[in-house]
Design a protein around this nucleic acid. Sequence first.
DNA 1: TATTGTTATACTCTATAACTATA
DNA 2: TATAGTTATAGAGTATAACAATA
Lengths: 177, 177
Amino acid sequence: MANQTKRRVARMPGPKAVPGRDIEAPTAHEIGKRRPEVRLDGLTSLAGYLIRQAQLWVFADFNTTLAPLDIRPAQYSMLVVIRDNPGLSQMALSEVLGISRSGIIPPLDELQSRKLLKRTAASDRRTHALRLTTEGKALLAHADSLVQQHEQRLMDKVGARGHQQLLNVLEVFGRDS
Amino acid sequence: MANQTKRRVARMPGPKAVPGRDIEAPTAHEIGKRRPEVRLDGLTSLAGYLIRQAQLWVFADFNTTLAPLDIRPAQYSMLVVIRDNPGLSQMALSEVLGISRSGIIPPLDELQSRKLLKRTAASDRRTHALRLTTEGKALLAHADSLVQQHEQRLMDKVGARGHQQLLNVLEVFGRDS
DNA sequence: TATTGTTATACTCTATAACTATA
DNA sequence: TATAGTTATAGAGTATAACAATA
């Protein structure tokens, strides 16, 4: 049967017992079957939900577009910020990107192992001054052109006017937030 | 020193060697110090980046607002869709929410263990017909009012006009995607 | 044979705490 | 004492593959 005896244990402290299933009369849903149109009004009237869906589309399209370079959104952000702010520290980068200083290390390690950036010495010897390598700059230039294709697809999706409205309306989220 | 001998091993197949650091002349960045304004133009001109930042704000504010009910965005989405489509299957729900049928099980288990929904029998005995419990409906009603507060804060953030533009422009992401 | 729910497993992203070196 | 980078660890979210029950 579809309902097994042993259920998945929740990921927190103690195992949470998950009760079995009841029996209840079917609704128009089950009767209609054939993947009847699922009502989503309750969600699509929320701007937050639409923003989330848009973001999922953006990441999916970004990843597809940048796949030839094996660059994901977060990595692209890091490369751009380092290019535009050569010598900034990991702390500064992590603050700007809104992640913890420990969380930024794995992606930086990967980018460095791919020879796209380097950690150079700074006057404050506790810090690393981040810089793109020549190879990193070249790859980023290529990535920029692919990102423009991605941005164009987004524009195709929402229209030139809608695209401009997004830039205007969402500008408030660009700085700090 | 800040640079250790042993570096973090990348998470994929083989360990990737991470090279050491170079030494290079400091830029205006290090000299200026005092957290100089980091340039973000390269990112903030991309609608995709702004959408991502907006989404991070939305989730953060949503989580703060719904904290008293311990409901996260994905859980709220599930409860709303199940309320509006009583009896739908896990497959239908996972397709609508854009996640795999295995990935939807942990959150459903948790909601069921909290007695907010139930898996009832359906005519097709391979499937579960999802339904909210009375408790689930009550909690969702409470959640709805909190979500409206959250939506109001978003409107405060982008303005009533901007909010309406978001609903209009992002509508295309609401269905399928 | 195909589909639904489940389990096992794994990868990514992110966070906190503790440690080292530097300030 | 405080800060930057690192390590260890853990949790949440997601995915794929294989399996049993059912169609």
